[in-house]
Design a protein around this nucleic acid. Structure first.
Lengths: 157, 157
DNA sequence: CTGTGGATGTTGAGCGCTCAACAAGTCAGG
DNA sequence: CCTGACTTGTTGAGCGCTCAACATCCACAG
């Protein structure tokens, strides 16, 4: 009773798979080459830089950077050893940890950003028409909402 | 002189990033849970199953599954230890290795496929309109071509 | 032939991610 | 209070990927 993909759907799916894979591999490689950090770490730095005082609680940072708590923990540990992030404990909740972006971290981000945006433009925006860019946003937000509504299993009722 | 992303472009880029990340994480998790293989391995099995005699040279398999030679080597080694793939050497080119999908491998693929397609439908196709699906293919193929034309650096001339 | 440049496939080190288990803290009901 | 359920963040094992180095083989110019 499986609703298999027909020929058209196959092509669409494989094109999507190939394009996204190539895009992210390329951007990751560029970032690794030019700034020596993986893209996920770059994203963490960005979110921190946007926050008031350039600091966020680990859980908030995890949410905003689409990261699991575990992944974030490992990542911040690594970034801390680079001197780009510093962790302090939270005053009102003793479980809490607050990640602060250091000046060195901000500088590293500032150094990496121009090259990265250039890459994003080159590989994503420039090849597309204005109409396609609008479509891409709508398609992406639709997918996002669909996925957030069905986490995986229904909440234990 | 960096052409930064404006507000709209930011939103588009982050939506795209988030959607693709969530989609692939979800599909990967489902495949891992139901079939105990990562998505990239699944793709290798698919490509092999489509080939004549269910066999392909490593280099051809690497191309078709969007994989680096190194990654494929590791992957096939793992799949071989599962008994799902068997390697034989190539008659006319002594460097060559040919990967064969075994009956066990085909069975494993057949068992995993229905659940996976279901996931792809659920998370990708079902939420989108027919028009969006067409748009998605065009956007993807455009990105693909743009990336294939500019590998990274110009060929050493 | 012979050598030289390119292709093929493998390997090991290093790294990031997932998953499950865990310690520590919070909070609400009895 | 205090107990039990939940939340927060961390940890370690296992695994897949990248990257660079490598052994092997092909193909072609001389």
């Amino acid at each position: 009773m499986t609703r298999w993909l027909d020929e058209d759907e196959q092509q669409t799916w494989r094109a999507f798979l190939g394009a996204t894979r190539l895009v992210f591999e390329q951007l990751d490689r560029e970032l690794q080459r030019d700034a020596a950090i993986p893209h996920t770490y770059y994203e963490i730095l960005v979110r921190l830089s946007e926050a008031p005082d350039r600091a966020l609680r680990m859980s908030a940072l995890a949410d905003r950077s689409q990261s699991s708590r575990s992944r974030l923990s490992h990542a911040v540990a690594r970034l801390e050893s680079n001197g780009w992030v510093r962790r302090t404990s939270c005053a009102d909740d003793k479980r809490g940890q607050i990640a602060h972006l250091t000046d060195e971290g901000f500088a590293a981000l500032a150094a990496a950003a121009p090259g990265h945006v250039e890459g994003v433009r080159k590989h994503v925006f420039d090849p597309l028409t204005d109409a396609q860019i609008v479509q891409l946003r709508e398609i992406s937000t639709t997918m996002l909402e669909a996925l957030k509504k069905q986490p995986d299993a229904p909440p234990c009722d």
